[in-house]
Simulated assay, not measured.
Amino acid sequence: MKYQHEITIKRSRNEVVEKFSDPENMEHWQKGFIFMKPINGELGAAGSQNLLKYEMGKREIEMTETILKNNLPNEFSATYEAKGVYNFQINRFKETTEGHTVWIADNEFKFSGFMKLFGWFMPGAFKKQSYKYMQDFKAFVEDGKSVKNE
Rank of each mutant, 00 (worst) to 15 (best):
T64S: 04
E42R: 12
P23S: 09
F20I: 10
I39E: 06
V147Y: 00
F35G: 14
K83P: 02
V141G: 01
F93L: 03
M63I: 11
N107S: 09
G32W: 04
F93G: 00
N91Q: 15
E95G: 06
F137G: 02
N40I: 14
V147M: 01
T96Y: 01
P73V: 03
G32K: 02
R92N: 11
A78Y: 10
Q4T: 12
K10Q: 07
E42Q: 15
I9V: 06
G41A: 12
E81H: 11
F118A: 03
K69N: 14
F111S: 00
E62C: 09
L52F: 13
G41W: 11
F121D: 07
K58L: 15
V141I: 11
K94Q: 09
G144H: 04
Y131S: 05
T97A: 13
N74C: 13
K37D: 13
M36R: 15
N74Y: 15
I39Q: 05
M115W: 08
K94T: 03
T101Q: 02
K19N: 04
M134H: 05
E27N: 04
W103A: 03
P73W: 01
F93M: 02
I34S: 07
Y86G: 07
K116W: 12
K116C: 02
R59C: 14
S112Y: 10
A139P: 06
F20A: 04
E15D: 11
F118E: 06
A45F: 12
S112H: 10
N25S: 02
K53L: 14
Q135N: 11
V147R: 00
F140T: 09
V16F: 09
N74L: 15
I39M: 10
N91L: 11
K110A: 10
K148L: 03
W29V: 04
S48L: 15
T64M: 03
H28Q: 13
F126M: 06
N91A: 12
N25W: 05
Q129G: 03
E65I: 04
Q129A: 06
K128S: 01
N149S: 09
K37F: 12
E142C: 02
K132G: 08
R59L: 15
E15T: 03
A125S: 04
Y80R: 01
Y86T: 05
K148R: 07
L43N: 14
G84K: 07
R11G: 09
E15S: 15
V17Q: 06
S146N: 04
N25P: 08
F118I: 08
N71A: 11
N87W: 02
E24W: 09
Y133N: 11
K19Q: 14
Y133R: 13
D136W: 05
K31S: 09
Y86N: 06
G113N: 06
Q30K: 12
